[in-house]
Write a protein that binds this DNA or RNA. Structure first.
Lengths: 351, 351
DNA sequence: CTGAAAGCGCTAACAG
DNA sequence: CTGTTAGCGCTTTCAG
């Protein structure tokens, strides 16, 4: 069997509790005994059993990240920020993909709570209603939300300023002269996406542009693709599309290519997130930049604060700012040719 | 405090061990008592403590995935396959990013072993030498490798047929008439990348094409970018580049755009992996398709087989096949103009 | 500064 | 089919 604390205690000629104190870096042990214990432990190739420790301390030093799909580069970025922050605080991070499936999400949550993870980071599914919220609270685990739930909650949230991002996108398209504008987005009641649309509509409205035609689908690469394939054939009047996120925008881009609809000459396209690859797709995507890595990082920090406070920490809403990144996928409505030439001259825009 | 097994046992009027049997879905309990226990558990909102269970059973039902960076879409895909497979078997997956840092990797491994994860999936850092291998073995944890270590090992591996992929890339470029070919790749001694180069060189050699100029850097988006910025200015004779993976190829693409080097008109570019976005970058990337999701999935299955066998399972090497996907980033050397015109139909190019 | 004792919450023989 | 009895490997009072 594996060598235990008792084994090394015996070998070092001390009591298990003393050995424990040494290995936990506890203050108040004789430097001599300490060194001896450490050495014996090293010699015997001792591996502390953290699950045993967790049983008594009640801390697992494990967090979880519950998202829809890690293949979405947005979440990969968030995940990396979260993992770095977790690791910096001595925690591991469990990755869970819920695919926007409410049941799957609930199963994960139950399972995670049984494993006594210290806290959970999640972008909740669309329909996080009162009843579900109650279940979450019953879990008695600190949770930080990465999107805004439809109802006021007890949970802390950290997210990008989605409303402002939508507003930036809307006023930019309006300013370019577009009037027949579509918005391709994900499921309804998705906190972040909903806010984006709100801000977008508000901007169009205040610029006296007709409200956008809104189409719901999957907020993913293939979701955007499918939506575009279905919509672009019928609605030939559309001159600009605001995609709910970059992944969808990429899907729209692929569909447009297949349909021989040039971007931005015939349709302007703007995304949301500013994923790494936005700058090299064809054409480089104009989009709203969100602090993805920082969101993951900040969310973990908030979460850990809750964990350490043990429930006595008041919820906080943290909103990180966004900005418009202009590349080459949008063009003025009136002067298409000029725009095309200009974009060419500009080459690429660093941000 | 939280309600424990004892609590619900008492409330249901049975012994803790009986309650345990009910909740573990153990056969051989009276259906009546079983129902009663389950109901009481539900009423009292009982949450099984899996860390306590783990302490006695020795199984944590947690696996770990140790990769260089989840932001690499290749790994995101692998991770998703792994997570799905793990979840299907009732396991959670811890995500670790090592950034190709040997020390960081070793720290993760130690920490994971202390947490008593059931098994680890990893793409080892470049330098997995004998001494390090010994340390891994001392961990006494089932490990499945996602790349081929430089020395023969006791570990199972599951990976793409990198050699064949390199060969496909090489013979394709040779067939297009290229003779001055560069290979941009990651650190030396990286199992998979090394194989790719081997296959590539073999193909060039058997086509009587001079061996490739090999440049090592970071095998990432920015790594490819930096390499291209540094190399393309000086080596004007290069007509084709084989990038170690798609991420690098994207970086090369960005650099080429900045340097006003048209792809594929002046330089042909081929990648490796066939990441989702390869089809929509500018221009769509010709690349080698690898079964990423399946690798993650198969690796977890192999890993779990080892876990269940408890060390008595012989190591197995599993190699999944690859194929060449021809898009628009490569052109024949002799007929550049034709190629340029063709590519133009697809979308827009800088020039 | 160190030892002894008492669990953390659960499962696993072993009886009954 | 169910209860009793021991722990799993560690931390943590509480004495000394």
């Amino acid at each position: 069997m594996a060598v235990t604390l008792k084994d090394i205690a015996r070998a070092a000629g001390v009591n298990a509790s003393t050995a424990s104190r040494c290995l936990s870096g506890f203050q108040g042990v004789n430097e001599g005994t300490r060194q001896r214990v450490m050495q014996v432990a090293a010699e015997m190739n001792y591996r502390l059993n953290r699950v045993a420790r967790g049983l008594v301390t009640g801390r697992s030093h494990t967090l979880a990240l519950l998202i829809s799909d890690i293949r979405n580069p947005y979440f990969a970025e968030v995940a990396r920020g979260a993992e770095d922050a977790a690791h910096a605080s001595g925690c591991d991070l469990i990755l869970c993909n819920s695919d926007f499936d409410g049941d799957k999400q609930m199963n994960y949550l139950r399972s995670l709570s049984e494993k006594r993870v210290d806290g959970i980071l999640m972008n909740s599914v669309a329909s996080l209603r009162r009843e579900q919220l109650k279940q979450l609270i019953d879990l008695r685990i600190p949770i930080v939300l990465l999107n805004k739930p439809p109802v006021r909650t007890e949970f802390s949230t950290v997210l990008a300023d989605n409303h402002e991002g939508g507003r930036l996108a809307g006023s930019y398209l309006a300013q370019l002269g577009h009037r027949t504008i579509a918005h391709f987005t994900g499921p309804k009641h998705h906190g972040n996406l909903t806010e984006r649309l709100r801000g977008f509509s508000a901007a169009l409205n205040s610029a006296r542009v007709p409200p956008p035609l809104v189409f719901h689908g999957q907020n993913s690469f293939s979701g955007g693709y499918q939506l575009a394939r279905r919509i672009l054939a019928d609605h030939t009047g559309i001159t600009a599309i605001f995609a709910g996120n970059d992944a969808m925008a990429f899907g729209v881009g692929l569909a447009a290519r297949e349909l021989k609809i040039p971007i931005p000459e015939r349709i302007s396209l703007i995304g949301f997130d500013d994923v790494d690859l936005s700058q090299i797709v064809n054409p480089p995507l104009t989009t709203i930049q969100t602090p993805k890595y920082e969101i993951g990082q900040a969310a973990v920090e908030t979460l850990l604060r809750h964990v350490r406070a043990g429930g006595s920490q008041p919820a906080e809403q943290r909103i990180l700012s966004v900005k418009l990144v202009i590349r080459e996928s949008c063009a003025p409505l009136a002067a298409k040719l000029t725009a095309a030439r200009q974009a060419d001259v500009g080459g690429m825009h660093e941000d």
